[in-house]
Amino acid sequence: MPLIEARELSRVYDLDSGRVTALDRVSLDIEAGDLVAVMGPSGSGKSTFMNLIGCLDRPTGGHYRLDGVAVETLSSDGLAELRNRKLGFVFQQFNLLPRVDACANVELPMVYAGADRKARRERALAALGRVGLAERAHHRPMQLSGGQQQRVAIARALVNEPRLLLADEPTGALDSRTALEILALFQDLNREGVTVVLVTHDAEVARHARRVIRFRDGHLLSDQRQQPADARAALAALDAAPPVYPETEIHAEALP
């Protein structure tokens, strides 16, 4: 049984200025354990698709099963519980709570899962350790770099051990090296069995997925499997051969 089963999934917005079909009859399965990149031009329906499979939004047509559960039948509390137990979200803008430290941010999903304080703390620290931020647990978001903030957000998404990690432009606000670190983290998690779906319009990012899905105007345009590039290996290569700065070269030539 696939983790995600979308059949003729549609999302239509009825606006005063007319109807907008953000997603048009998309049928698609995603197996557990896959790493999928969702691509397409701006306005093609990527985020709409993510919101639907993430149970943040309800389709206006078609059917959707998540882990065998027909999502249409669930109440809003039922959807909240599903998001809490089976899904983890990572956003482009991190969306951390600014007033509390990294650990408390990571604890948030467990607060709504009803875990007690001690268990929450332990698991939040473990999740932060897993993203390599154990020693930053008591820093506030403001005191962390963008890459570190995104890793806190990933730890938060992981802390309830979800089946599915959804990331909408997770590297959009990061430089290419930090983006690579985040991708390496996603690949590690994927190897450990977490299903990852990430939205990107950066082909370089999409190279690290096992499967690439393309949208255009709300339609599914293409669906390809590929051999993923290894983000860890790319990082190691970067560390082995530090970039040579052009000024340094010019400077060397100018020497008598």
């Binding site: 993430g54 509390d77 998001r83 809490n84 969306n95 709570l97 948030l108 709504y112 899962a113």
Partner: peptide
Amino acid sequence: GLRLAVGARQRD
């Protein structure tokens, strides 16, 4: 929005 995304119910 974030709290709702990570599983807060309306009553929370």
